[in-house]
């Protein structure tokens, strides 16, 4: 039973790290601020959650698992807020998305915004 849990836990950890890796690739490859924030926060929330879940399973029912749960709780509390604040700030300082619904902007408006609007 314990071995089984450890195995599932191990799989979770590996999946979490893989997700983080993909997130890192996204952070580097995505075209604009918003998509990059998306990639980064997926790493933080999804990747970290899976890793923590895996570690919980490996640790079994103990104080360690409780502490890990607290860690997860605080990550869930902070990273989405941070991503939100970051996106807000980016929007406030004139960054406009390059893809998605916002992309359909009039050319003059596009010229007005200071940074990061021109398509490659």
């Amino acid at each position: 039973m314990t071995d089984m849990l450890s195995l599932i836990g191990g799989v979770c950890v590996v999946a979490g790290t893989a997700l983080s890796l993909i997130g890192a690739a996204g952070l580097l490859r995505f075209p604009d601020v918003y998509t990059r924030i998306h990639a980064a926060s997926i790493t933080d929330t999804g990747g970290a959650s899976l890793v923590l879940l895996g570690l919980c399973l490996i640790a079994g029912l103990s104080l360690t698992a409780l502490k890990l749960a607290f860690v997860w709780f605080s990550i869930m509390l902070t990273t989405p807020v941070a991503a939100n604040a970051l996106a807000n700030a980016a929007f406030g300082s004139g960054h406009r998305p390059r893809i998605g619904a916002f992309q359909i902007m009039r050319t003059d408006e596009r010229r007005k915004t200071s940074r990061g609007t021109e398509a490659p």
Partner: peptide
């Protein structure tokens, strides 16, 4: 700080005591 930081403010109120 504009209203658009409402998420930040609400969660900060929650986070600071924590």
């Amino acid at each position: 700080i504009g209203d658009h930081h409402v998420v930040l403010r609400v969660s900060a109120k929650f986070l600071i005591p924590l």
